[in-house]
Nucleic acid binder design. Structure first.
Lengths: 189, 189, 189, 189
DNA sequence: ACCTAAGCGAGACGGTACGTCGCGTCTTACA
DNA sequence: TGTAAGACGCGACGTACCGTCTCGCTTAGGT
């Protein structure tokens, strides 16, 4: 059994809280390890003891829900098209409010040199369990839908739209999500 | 009329050549102003005289075709769907070769802090003239196509796919572009 | 006979005026060639055409009386001790007023790497013609004085006092010059 | 009680050693912070952590005896005039050898912008304890001497001679110190 | 009345050094 | 042994001046 003081949960929490606050206020790029340490009242060494890099802290903050804190789980009501449309609307609406698009785009930039962050963003956006591709596949197998495009392509197109919105800051147009999903899934009704 | 010595075209060209070479060799993030200056045989001050930041240099290198040098103009043969499919295939094939996806994704990350770069990337990818949305709109007006989605949505979906590919490094699957464009534009043939 | 435009006296004068003003305002060290050029409305090239260095400009400004502009000629009334005392009093009084000590000390600092400046300062302080040593020698030869110290030593001591005053910023005490000169020249009266 | 790592004595010593060596080799003006850092194998930041400016480093090097390392303490044998004469001879002889006059004059120039340096030079030359003025005062009170000039004036004259020597680079003449001190202190013997 | 060789302002250029920031590693003293 | 504090070597930042070098204009003798 290890001797000496145990890992300080207070320090741990302070780090995550500070990094979330800083990312929100100044953006990912302008966040520095020294800034986090100062804001959290923690020594740099403590940070480096638990995290190998700035992006690892961000990744954990994502997992802990300190960033992108809302619940973006894809609902499961039996109507796959409606579920996905509702979820997409939720995501796009979220991006259109406050500086959430800026937050997400700075995280996307971060994910370029940290695949981990990309993965955590996906999870946070509700894609941690069954992905859109899987949902579509299942619905197709069940005869619920018969889309022209493959489930993977549909997944990619929808996530691509989210990315474009995060990067481009376009406003959200009422009903857009429903129309898009409807078209992609060939929901004729 | 401006007085004083004119801007040195030699220095100008050397800067752009060096930045292109460096981005290619070490990646966007690892490029430094001092590195550019050293490689170009130019003083830092000369760089700062003409560019406010690293991203401005990248933006100009993009405009000058020193990065993403290929011709990605969307063809115009009369068949809009085929034109766009051919163009998309070209872009996706390009991204699948060498370290081009890494290059583009690092540029996308850069564009988060520099809208200018985002704009120049679009231009370089052939979207500087009539956009996909415009092409689709024109074809729809001419009765050539009657897609379910709006031209803007189609545009966004297609560009979104390119982004996803750049960020995700998936390989390109033969014929993918054609299938995707076909489905989005409702080309039943 | 030379052809082409003649040296611009306007530029010449503007340079000297600016350098004098700048030395007075910011001190020798903080004066820059670029600052002079900007203040004088003159190009750097024009300055370098006529002066090899900053200290050369200072030297000329001294010669022209733009710095240390007062007349410090040693009087010649026949009474050597009184002459020197009067002169010394004049110099020390000058140093005690305004920021003249600061000016002189910055010039002394300049003279460390520019003997030319040292020479010009001496001239300006009235030592350009017969030096103190020469005056004392002459008075000694004439039987007017019979000092214990050699003329050169006396000269050095008196100039040394001026230096100390310039460097040390002590205030001037009424009658000090007279007492000092009296003692050094053994004027018993 | 201060926490954190203590100041590195190794770095501290290396800085002082380097600055002493550089001043000796290239002269005060040509010494740069970057040069010191490179020579000492120390980062610039470490230098700036402890010293606000180049002159502060010089001041400390003076205090530590890395520059003007000789012992210039004024002796105290009971014979004040002889003590001062011996000390002055020591100083003037020192200045006449090697490039010591150049060293001192560059330090004097530096002291124009840094009173601290001026103070440290005085201390180094043996004037840190009882000054010449104090020694003369004491001797006068004891009836040992009865000089015409005030102790302060004598002090100033003697130090002025040292300055003149430093700035003027005259050679030292055998016995000069003794004659000078003799005359100023009215030692008739 | 033209040349044409200076002089001139403006200012770009390759450099060197500045003083600052943040990195990731380390050392110290305390709990 | 974990922690806050903080020093350290390092690399890059963006700025200030250096002294040299074009530019295009003005000026004024020589033909």
């Amino acid at each position: 059994m290890p001797r000496g003081a145990a890992r300080s949960e207070a320090a741990h929490a302070a780090i995550l809280a500070s990094v979330a606050s800083l990312v929100d206020r100044v953006g990912y790029d302008a966040v520095t390890i020294e800034g986090i340490a100062a804001e959290a009242g923690v020594s740099k060494q403590t940070i480096y003891r638990w995290y190998p890099s700035k992006s690892a802290i961000i990744a954990e903050a994502l997992v802990e829900g300190r960033l992108l804190g809302e619940d973006f789980t894809i609902p499961d009501t039996g109507d796959t098209a409606a579920d996905i449309a509702a979820w997409l609307e939720h995501v796009l609406t979220f991006l259109a409010s406050r500086n959430h698009a800026a937050l997400l785009s700075s995280l996307v930039a971060a994910s370029v040199d940290s695949p981990e962050i990309g993965l955590r963003i996906s999870e946070r956006l509700g894609l941690g369990g069954p992905t859109i591709a899987e949902r579509v596949q299942r619905a197709t197998d069940a005869g619920e839908l018969s889309p022209v495009l493959s489930p993977d392509q549909i997944d990619q197109l929808i996530v691509g739209v989210i990315m474009m919105r995060a990067l481009g800051r376009n406003p959200y147009e009422q009903g857009e999500a429903r129309r898009l999903v409807g078209a992609l899934l060939e929901v004729t009704g």
